[in-house]
Every structure is written in structure tokens, then in C-alpha cells.
Design a binder for these strands. Structure first.
Lengths: 238, 238
DNA sequence: CGCAGCTTTGAGAATCCTCAACTATTGTGG
DNA sequence: CCACAATAGTTGAGGATTCTCAAAGCTGCG
């Protein structure tokens, strides 16, 4: 757990085989570790960045910002996720990356990543694959917003988070370590904060989840999946 | 206009400079041209493909398919768009690619694309950049579905299509060459067909557009942008 | 203790959906 | 070229979901 990219490489290898030298080249990358409070913008909209952000602790989100200042969170990133890998290809951001909880992250320089590509083209493919998985999740989320009700959307989000957090040990016994406010859930789900409250309450009253200020405990994962019309295969884009 | 990848390379060069040899390498790629009727699946969900689809004529869409058979169109592709470029990195599709109108397209073999990468790493970066632009548009669309009403969504879609179709000469005088049915608009906008009708009618009655069976004429592009809260910068991810 | 941020609650209204019919257009086989 | 079928567009009534606005109760922190 000592090298900056340790968690990221571990996650990458779930989808894509790396040989010893490729893994070593990635782990050799050095990066500055930064700790920030909630609401900090890791990347501001329109900014041109020279590094990608690797989340080490906490939760970050990608936010589209409208002209009138309203925000919409279009993707969510947990420990081990490189939230801005796209920026290696396109350094000018069209969105903001924001800390949704207190966060620790590494600023991984683009040059360091591109330098690895030179010697190890297979690594470039692995990273491209990672951005495709990200795009794939977003395509799924478009369909969720298009077709599902607030109740179904929340269920879908929780199932997805349970899977992703379990993979990095942040969901022991179905207790999801997500200290988000109802306003933040509203920006994620595309509904109003008031309705977030009522939706959580209904799922709780139906015995599916037990939300609290710092986490959400999933009591009935099967029921949640059924409500969400969750497709078990879409996250496993191997 | 003779080589299969001509339109694609032209579009690619709007965002990313290619030198003479790189351009030649791409244009040298050979591909089978296929013509299909509306509703044909270029790619079926779950299928593992050996080629990417380059739209030459007509409109194709990426569709997420739910377990209950309902579909949601999460992206739309016009002439010059490589709708399945992701598949080079991840050959197993999590979605369907469907012909929304009668279509002509090229099946561009993955090996041919990967072979170009070997000699010209800059081309790999250009293509990666293209998939990032695609992901960027999808992130924007997530925010549109999250935050905008049916009227605003339709306006946003039409503004985006006007820009993209103009770039390939398919929107003379603001007359967008989109022969989609109201059911198809419904799958794109995440609303019901009935509501698509009423939304089109309202925009027409307000003098903003003049829809007909084969096209949509944009009468008031400025007004449409205002309604859509459209951000002029997001498509130009250079 | 008091303030700031978050959650909980309620009433009324807007948007969008469901269902069901009817009309218009396009395509097809005779 | 006609008759019919299939597909697509139009219309209405009633209802469900979600929003808006407003206020009151918590909780944690300085």
C-alpha cells in the first residue's frame, strides 16, 4: 500500500492482465498526495490540467455545471478510481471534479503516464479500457435516468455502489461507506432533495435499507436489485 | 470520398492534427460497406465484435436494453462517426448499436486499426481522444436528463444535432436531416411518445421549429439555445 | 449557546404518464 | 393501381410522480 498507484493497479488487474514489468512501471510512478475537505474542486470546469486524479480515500464526483450555476453529478469515484484519466487524452476539462466527502487523492502527472505508454503499449490499452468502462457505466446511467423512477434510480445507485465499494473493502456486511448528504444524492439522481428524503424513507420502511448519516446498510440486496432492474453483467466489462 | 475512412479522417482532423503519413495509413484501411434498413442491429447486446462501425449514411444509435426488453437510446451517431470505437479496447458490447434510419456503414476490422497504432502512436492518441469526446457528450447528456424538462431536453438535442449535422453538410439552412419517428425521440429523450408529440407541437407553436416527417427545420436557433441552456463550449473538446 | 448545515414534514401545483381511441400516412400483395 | 395492413401521428381524460415553496426539528461545531 506504499506506492501511489497501488490501489489503482490492483483494480486495473481485475480487468486486464499486466506482466511483471508493466506493473512495475506503473508502480514506479510518483505522485503528490493531497488531502482536501468536502466541496473542494479537484478540477475546475474549463481548466487545463497536467495531471490525472487518483482517489485514495473518500468520494469524488464529476459535475456538469450549467450556465445558471446548477450542478449535476454525472459520475462518482471511490478509492482506486482514476477519476480524470480522460484528461491524459484531452487535458481541457469540460466538467468539474469535486470532493463529495473529505478526500485524499494523488495528482498523477500526464507525462509520467505517457512515458509508460512508450515502453509498454499494453498499458496504454489497459488504460484505454479503463476509460471505456467508465463510459460504459455512464451509458448505463443515461438509460437509468431515462427510464426509471426515483425509487428505481436510488436502488440502482446503491447496488452499483455496493459492488464497487465491496471491491475495495469499503462495504463490510453490506454497510456502504457513503457519507453523502441528501442534496448530493439529489444531484446524482436528478431529483429534488425533498424527494430524496421521501425515497430513502420508503426504501427504509420497506425493509430494504437502513440509511444513516455516515453510511447506508443494505438489508435486502436481492430485493434492491429487483427494484433497480439491475443487470449483473454491465460492470464486468472484461 | 472514395476511401472508406475518408469522412471519419476529415472529422478526426477537426480535433487532432495528423501528418501526411498518419492520414495515409488510416485511409489505407479497407472495410466492407454494408447497407441496412431501419431497425437493423449493427451490433447485438452482449455480442463480441471484431470490427468497429463507421456510419457513412443515415443515423445509428447506441441502445441500452433492459431485462424487460425496454430500450433507451443513449447516444446517436451520424455520417463520419465511428460508433463503436470503444470496441477496439473492449470487444464485448454491453449495448446494442441499431440503425435508427436506413443506414450505410463500414465494418472496420479491429486488427486494421491496431496495426496502424503500431507504426503511428499519435493515431492511437487521436482515436482515444475521439472516444473521450464521445464520453464527454454522454456526461453532458446525463446532466440534461437529470435537470432539464422535456421541452428543454428536446431543444438541447436539436441544438446538438444542428451543430453535428452542419459539420458534415446535413443541415442546410437549419434543415436537419433526421427522419426519426416520435417513438425514437421518446427513447432518446426519456419521455413517452405521446409527450414527444406535445413537446414538438409546443415548440412549433412557439415558432422555434418546423418539424415534418423527414426533417426538422430550426427557425430560431438562438431561442432554442436559450431554452436548452446550451453551453457552446462542450462539443469542442480540442 | 447560537449559528450553520442538514433532515423532516406538509400542502398544493406542474409535469409527465397511462390508456384508449381515432386519423393519417406508408408499404404491400393482388 | 387498388385495397388492405401496418406503422406513425394526433387527441383527450384522468391519474401518478415529482416539484415548489415554506417551515420546523435536528446535529455538530465554534
Amino acid at each position: 500500500m506504499d506506492r501511489p498507484l497501488t490501489k489503482f493497479v490492483r483494480r486495473l488487474e481485475l480487468r486486464h492482465a499486466l506482466d511483471e514489468r508493466e506493473r512495475a512501471a506503473l508502480l514506479a510512478i510518483d505522485a503528490r498526495r493531497v488531502e482536501r475537505k468536502r466541496r473542494w474542486d479537484l478540477v475546475k470546469p474549463g481548466e487545463t490540467v497536467g495531471f490525472a486524479c487518483l482517489v485514495d480515500d473518500g468520494i469524488a464526483g464529476r459535475a456538469e455545471v450549467f450556465a445558471d450555476g446548477r450542478r449535476s453529478t454525472t459520475a462518482i469515484y471511490v478509492a482506486g478510481d482514476m477519476c480524470d484519466l480522460h484528461s491524459v487524452a484531452v487535458p481541457k476539462a469540460g466538467w468539474a471534479i469535486t470532493a463529495l466527502t473529505d478526500c485524499a487523492y494523488y495528482e498523477v502527472p500526464h507525462e509520467a503516464i505517457l512515458a509508460v505508454f512508450d515502453g509498454f503499449p499494453n498499458v496504454a490499452l489497459a488504460l484505454w479500457r479503463d476509460t471505456v468502462a467508465d463510459a460504459s457505466a455512464m451509458s448505463k446511467w443515461v438509460s437509468v435516468l431515462s427510464r426509471l423512477s426515483a425509487r428505481e434510480r436510488l436502488a440502482h445507485l446503491l447496488v452499483e455502489l455496493q459492488i464497487r465499494l465491496s471491491a475495495v473493502g469499503l462495504a463490510p456486511d453490506g454497510d456502504l461507506d457513503i457519507a453523502l448528504t441528501q442534496d448530493q444524492f439529489a444531484e446524482l439522481l436528478g431529483i429534488t432533495p425533498t424527494h430524496v428524503y421521501r425515497t430513502f424513507r420508503d426504501l427504509r420502511d420497506d425493509g430494504l435499507i437502513l440509511p444513516d448519516r455516515a453510511s447506508v446498510r443494505v438489508l435486502d440486496p436481492i430485493g434492491l436489485r429487483r427494484i433497480a432492474k439491475f443487470d449483473d453483467h454491465y460492470l464486468l466489462t472484461h
